[in-house]
Amino acid sequence: MTGHRSSAASDAATGNGASPGEPVIDVSGVDFGYTATPVVENVSLTVESGEYVAVVGPNGSGKSTLMKLMLGLLEPDEGTVRLFDEPAHAFDDGDRIGYVAQQASASKEMPITVREVVKMGRFPHVGFGRLSAEDWRIVDDALATVGMGDFADRRITNLSGGQRQRAFIARALASEADLLVLDEPTVGVDAESVEAFYDLLDALNERAITILLIEHDLSAVTDHADRVVCLNREVYFDGPTAEFVESDALARAFGTTATVVGDAR
C-alpha cells in the first residue's frame, strides 16, 4: 500500500518535487502490442519536470496505449519506461500522479458528490486512515482552485461535462500531484468550457505542475502546449509547438488532408 506516508512527503507536492535533472517520464526504445501487431514501436521520449507536453496522433495511433505504458498500467514488450526514476509498472507512489480520463469512462449513475470525488485525491496520502482536517482543507482548496466550490455537495452525475472534468482536475490537485496526465479530457465538453479548461491547465503548468496531454483536438494543442509529440505507432515529431506547426509531421502521421486548425484562428 502507498498509504501512511509521512507529512514530510507532502513537500514534494508543491510542484517541483522531482529532484533537479530527474526526468518525470523516461521512455526508451519501447515496443508494445496487445497481439503480435505492434501498437507502439521504438518510442523514446523524455518529459522533464515542469513541461507541458501534448501527444497527438490519429485514431488508433497508439497514443492512449503509450499513456498507459507511461503510467505503468501496461508493461512494454521491449525497452523501458521509467516514472520519477522508477520502473513505471512498479511505481506505486500514487500521490505524485493525477489522472484525468475521457469523461465517458466516468459517466456512471452512482450517487456521489463532487466533494467525495475530490476526496479520493487524498486517499494515496491517508491509506486506510481517515481524512484529517488538513486533508479536508486541501480538498476544499482544490475545489476553489477550479472554481467549483459552490458545487461541492452536488451529485456529480448532475453536472455538465465541463464541470465534471473540472471536478476531476480538482481530484488530481487534491492529491498534490507533480504530474498531471490527461487522456482526451475535453471529449464531449461544450466549446466554451473547453477554453476555460485549457486556461486552467495553463495556470496549473505555471505552478510548475508537469502536464502530459493526450489529445486529438489539434487546435487546443497548438494554442496551449509547449511541446508536441506526434505519434502514429512511431514518433513522427517531437519538439517545440511552433516547429510542429511548420513541419510536415502532421501530414505524414495523419495522411495528407490534415491541417492544424489552431493557427488559422
Partner: peptide
Amino acid sequence: ALTRNQLLYVTFDETAAEVSGIP
C-alpha cells in the same frame, strides 16, 4: 471499514485508482 477508501476509489474509477497506486 478498513478498506472503504480503496473500495470506493476502485468502484468509482478503476483506472484512476490503479494510477493512484491501489492494487
